[in-house]
Design a protein around this nucleic acid. Sequence first.
DNA 1: CATGTTTGACATATAAATATCACTATCCTA
DNA 2: TAGGATAGTGATATTTATATGTCAAACATG
Lengths: 137, 137
Amino acid sequence: MELSRQADYAIRAMMDLAEIPEGELSQTREIARRQEIPEKYLPTIVRTLARAGLIRTLRGSHGGISLARPASKITLRDVVEAIDGPVLLNRCEIRPGECGGVGDKNCSLHTFWERMVRDIEDQMDSIDFEYLVSGER
Amino acid sequence: MELSRQADYAIRAMMDLAEIPEGELSQTREIARRQEIPEKYLPTIVRTLARAGLIRTLRGSHGGISLARPASKITLRDVVEAIDGPVLLNRCEIRPGECGGVGDKNCSLHTFWERMVRDIEDQMDSIDFEYLVSGER
DNA sequence: CATGTTTGACATATAAATATCACTATCCTA
DNA sequence: TAGGATAGTGATATTTATATGTCAAACATG
């Protein structure tokens, strides 16, 4: 069970953006270099983040990208779900009622995963990028 | 963030085994059919579980597989880690100290992931296959 | 308004996970 | 001890994730 590499890259790019003063732009090439993300790969990730409304982009000379709203208003979960979709889908959850549980009884596994997903979501909801960057909230 | 399909299959196969009386054997083909796991794929997963010491196998006519120890002594974490390895590795954890945190300060992200991994591990430790199958502990 | 710079989009390449196949080793039973 | 049934193993195919490359669109500046 791992976070996808794309999500990891996205989180670090967002942290990089959260470091600079609000409203200023960074170039993806610089972010990639600082965060050790493949230079040619980051644009693909940035596009997804932009479509999800998490960052703003500006083309052209002196263009770049920036957070679409204050770092304190963007959570880890926002970023992870923008990239990977909902947390921890397993087949048991995708098709409720057909849990693969033997017989007709309720699937204990299903119940367990539901609780765990909720916990993970709650924890990721509680972490915003201002905290990640400053260590304070 | 998802569980790998292999781990999902492995968990359901183990639940299937936990349903039958201790010591009796099941055939992988039957397990695959009941749990809707690709028939040709399950042997690959079974092999990993056997090497991890979680199941016993017997070849030949009337052969099959069974849990290597009582279902109450096998946890979800045992199975998930046998298949996928340690939980939730992200690059931040793989290379401590090089968190991609900007500057030299401690990486808040790192701290967060550590806590979350511990929580997930604890939850998966607390669920054994007897509970999963019977709903009781 | 021409030029250089930077992102957007899409096509392609590579790597990893998932799934299948063919063949071998082992075991039970007659 | 021969035959059939079952798992073991490694090779191969397929699908998905990751990464790169190419060119177009937008923008600032002179």
